[in-house]
């Protein structure tokens, strides 16, 4: 075996078939028990320089020392457990915000409340051969955002910093 644990435990007559990823830095030299993100089976592993020196061995009834940080199921359309699913995957605290999206964040206003063109789709606005001028005619191109901005202004939600 290696630094994934492909869990083959039979659950409800079917193999669990979940892949638990053992990320390289955390587990490069590591000994202890870890749960399968899907079925909760606890495995003992001992890794030395990235090698699975012992394990994975099932340890029924033991509390796991840690959890994988990510797991997915290739036979289930790669459905996955992302970091920090309670009781299944290890949290990942060192992130830029509390919740990461992993997809484009649709942003219409900067943190001080002024319009910023961070959402899609944008209406066509280019001239010849993709040319643009030096003005974003927001009132014409995105009237709904312009209106929202006016309301923000009136409500005093637009700040200098």
């Amino acid at each position: 075996m290696c630094d994934i644990i492909w869990c083959k435990k039979e659950v409800n007559g079917k193999p669990c078939d979940t892949i638990n990823y053992l990320d390289p830095y955390y587990f490069w030299n590591w000994e202890g028990t870890i749960n399968c993100a899907e079925c909760g089976t606890v495995y003992y592993i001992h890794m030395i320089q990235g090698f699975m020196y012992r394990g994975p061995e099932e340890r029924d009834g033991e509390k796991p020392d840690t959890s994988p940080i990510y797991a997915d199921k290739p036979y289930d359309g790669y459905s996955s457990y992302r970091p920090g699913v309670n009781g299944r995957t290890r949290p990942f605290q060192c992130t830029p915000r509390k919740e990461l999206l992993g997809v484009a964040d649709m942003v219409k206003f900067s943190i001080r409340g002024r319009p910023v063109r961070g959402w899609r789709p944008q209406p066509p606005s280019a001239g010849l051969a993709g040319s643009h001028g030096f003005k974003w005619d927001i009132a014409k191109l995105s009237p709904e955002v312009w209106e929202e901005y006016q309301k923000k202004l009136a409500a005093g939600e637009v700040k200098d910093w």
Binding site: G102, A104, R117, R120, Q122, S125, G130
Partner: peptide, 11 residues
């Protein structure tokens, strides 16, 4: 992290 883009890229 695939999160931050400004639009348009091109029409």
């Amino acid at each position: 992290f695939n999160e931050v883009y400004l639009y348009p890229f091109s029409d």
